[in-house]
Structures are given as C-alpha cells and as structure tokens.
Design a protein around this nucleic acid. Sequence first.
DNA 1: ATATAAACAGAACAAGTTGTTCACTATTGA
DNA 2: TCAATAGTGAACAACTTGTTCTGTTTATAT
Lengths: 183, 183
Amino acid sequence: MDRRQRKTREAIFRAFIEILSKKDFNNITVGEIIEKADIGRATFYAHFETKEFLLKELCEELFCHVFDSVGDVHNDHRHIFECEAPDSVFLHLFQHLKKNDNNILDLLSGHNNELFMRYFKTNLQKLVASQLNMFDSSKSKSLPESFRINHISAVFVETVCWWVNNGMKETPETITEYFFLSV
Amino acid sequence: MDRRQRKTREAIFRAFIEILSKKDFNNITVGEIIEKADIGRATFYAHFETKEFLLKELCEELFCHVFDSVGDVHNDHRHIFECEAPDSVFLHLFQHLKKNDNNILDLLSGHNNELFMRYFKTNLQKLVASQLNMFDSSKSKSLPESFRINHISAVFVETVCWWVNNGMKETPETITEYFFLSV
DNA sequence: ATATAAACAGAACAAGTTGTTCACTATTGA
DNA sequence: TCAATAGTGAACAACTTGTTCTGTTTATAT
C-alpha cells in the first residue's frame, strides 16, 4: 500500500479513536474527524464510504487482531482445550485484552462500549460454538444448543464489561475463574 | 391532561413505534415521525425536546409498566420469593412479556432490540439486587456482589433476547427454567 | 353560551451535516 | 524523469434540525 494512503488511514483511525473515547458515536461528525486527522474532506470519503463503514473497519481491525491471536493458540496446542484448563482460549483472550494493544480498552470502556461489545459478541459466537464441549455440565444438557452458545458468549462479554468498567483490578486468571464460575 | 395533548402524544408514539419496527433508530428523522403521526412540526417539538427524549419517554412508559406489575406481586406475597419458586418475579416478567401489551415485542425484536434491552437491563439491576438471595449457591459465594448483580441481569436480558428472536415458542415456565439453569 | 387560555397547523428560517465534484498540487515508485 | 496515484480545498445541492411566527381550532371554567 502507498505510504500516503497508509499514513492517511492511520491518521483517520487515530483521530477517530481519540474522539470515540470522549463522545458518543452518533454525535461525531465527519467534520470533526477530518479536522483532528488534519486531512481534506474528499480524502476521507476516498478512504471510507461513511462514518459507519469507518467504525466497521475499526472493529474488524481490532477484533481480527484479538481473534487471530486465539487462532494461533488453537493451532499450536489443540489438545489442552478442556474445561478449566488454565491456559484456555478464554484466559488467553483476557490476557490479550489486559495488554491493551491498539488502546482497545479506551474503546471498551467509555461511552461507546456497547458498540464494540456487540461486535465482540458476534465474533465470539463462532469461537464459543467450536469450544462448546468445554462447558458441558449436568445442568446445561437440557438447554438448546443455540441458547447455550448465545448464553456463553453473552456472559463472556458481560464479564469483560464488568472487568473493564471496574478498573481491571483482577488478574486475567481471576477473571477467567469468575467466568467459568458464572457460565 | 388535555384530550388534544393526549391524542397528539399517542399519535407520535404510535408512529414512532411503527417506524422503529422497520428502521434503525439513528436513521429515523423527525420529518418521518410527524408525517406518519400527521401532526405539525412545531407540535412535535412542543411535546418532545428531541428524538432521543421521545425514545427515553417511550422506554419509561414501556418498562415502568412491566416493572410496576412486578411491584404489585412483590407487595402481595413477598414470602414466596425463594429459589425455583414457580411464580417468581422472573416468571412473572416472562409472562408479562408474552402478553405483548403495548406491542413491546415489536420493539424487543427487530433492528432496535439492543436499544431497549439496554434500557431493560438498567431497570432490572435494582430488582435483581433486591432478589439476590434467590440465586445463592456454593459457586456464587466467591464472586463479588456487583459482578453477580450485573451477571444475573445480563443473563435475564439475554434470555429474553434469545426467546424473542426465536419466535417465543417456549412457554414462560420453560423459559424461566432455562433462566434458572443458566444463572 | 361564551370568553379565555391552551394546543395545533404550517410555513419559513438559520445553522449544521452529508456526500460529491472539480481543478489543482504533491508524492510515489518504476 | 515522468506517468500514475493520492491528497487539497473550496464549492455544491440536498437534507436535517430546532426555532419562530401568524392564524386557527379546541377545551374548559364561569
């Protein structure tokens, strides 16, 4: 990719993230973004069709990153995915979040957390579906599969929400324990 | 309240609900609402400061109604609130939803369900806090109280979501069972 | 029944936003 | 070096918002 394109794209993302951490998505204008990114109006629209597409691409960059890192683990040691395995996929996700690459935490807390958590949950469903056996219990046997997949994904996202909004005081290991106790 | 005011207010709500069931909230314009409600522009703004306030008042009407009905039960037979009690507050809520007063189901499914579910969850937290003893178990003892309140509220809302989005085939009793098995 | 106050109609308005276009300039990379 | 590509900045039409105005209709208290 052309260096100019890359720089412009990054400037837009940087500006967008900064504004998102302070302001509701729906009240953000393209004017604000291009001013903070210091680019021309036409340039913005050459990169992104609308504000909404910008958000979508941001989400994809963020969560592809998170889920790709899970993919690696998945391929490396497939055999350790058993219930309560200390280095489970889910612990891995919590650890990854704590590292706060891409300032993802600024986005997961603050005004727009629901926006990102919804996106997060959608991506999570596939992962949970593939790991469903991890959560088998006598209780869960009588519940429909689609119910359980939705339930587990939702509880994970809510656990992340609670963790982030309470200052992330707990270790990833403790939060993983909370998650498995809840699910 | 003046009959004219009441009729106008109802016309606005009716139009708003109808549009909400077909379209994302953020893409709805005041112009559409007043056209469908068949009222003047100035009249709309005499009733509601903005579109967002209209949404807020709609939510309040809907959920006050739901939670008030719980309040009645709460006052009538406070003693039956024990785990798995067949006529628990939560069964009551599921039953109330199934009745579909105010066409609440049109809103809880469709494009804008997250909007309403979020509002629902917020209102639910107080109720859950007061009913927390219902959910005590050996597992839950080690979890922080604020975590548990958030968790239980979230699971309830997600259960409603799943139920509504899957055509509400299950009886309120079955869904209550799902809920208590999950939480 | 009628006077008075309140609500509504509807048009016009300024201010702000969106997404596009165009002529021009700057940068890239072969 | 030079052609291709990317960015600039201003101007634009179309739309949306929230306000203000004048004139009309409706409710209600006496």
